[in-house]
Computed example of a mutant assay.
Amino acid sequence: MQEPAPRVTLIGRPGCHLCDEARSVIERVTTDLGVAWDERSIDDDAELRAKYADQIPVTLVDGRRHDFWRVDEARLRSALG
Rank of each mutant, 00 (worst) to 15 (best):
Val8Thr: 05
Leu48Tyr: 01
Gly63His: 10
Arg23Glu: 14
Glu39Trp: 11
Arg65Ile: 13
Trp69Ile: 12
Arg40Ile: 07
Ala53His: 12
Ala36Arg: 03
Arg40Phe: 05
Arg28Lys: 15
Ala22Phe: 04
Met1Ser: 14
Gly15Gln: 08
Glu47Trp: 00
Pro6Asn: 03
Ala22Trp: 00
Asp72Val: 10
Cys16Ser: 13
Gln2Gly: 08
Val61Pro: 08
His17Leu: 10
Gly63Arg: 07
Val8Ser: 04
Leu76His: 05
Val58Gln: 01
Leu60Asp: 04
His66Cys: 07
Glu73Arg: 08
Ile42Gln: 01
Leu80Ile: 06
Val8Asn: 02
Gly63Leu: 10
Arg77Trp: 04
Glu39Ser: 14
Asp43Ser: 11
Ala5Asp: 10
Val29Asp: 02
Val29Glu: 03
Ile56Val: 15
Arg64Gln: 15
Val29Ser: 04
Ala5Gly: 03
Gly63Ser: 10
Ala46Cys: 03
Trp37Gln: 06
Gln55Lys: 15
Gln2Ser: 15
Val35Asn: 05
His17Phe: 08
Pro6Trp: 00
Gln2Thr: 14
Gly34Trp: 07
Cys16Pro: 07
Asp32Arg: 14
Ser24Arg: 08
Arg65Ser: 06
Val71Arg: 05
Gly12Pro: 00
Pro4Tyr: 03
Ala50Phe: 05
Ala36Ser: 12
Met1Ala: 13
Asp44Gln: 02
Leu10His: 00
Val58Glu: 01
Pro14Gln: 09
Gly15Asp: 10
Tyr52Lys: 02
Gly63Gln: 10
Leu18Tyr: 11
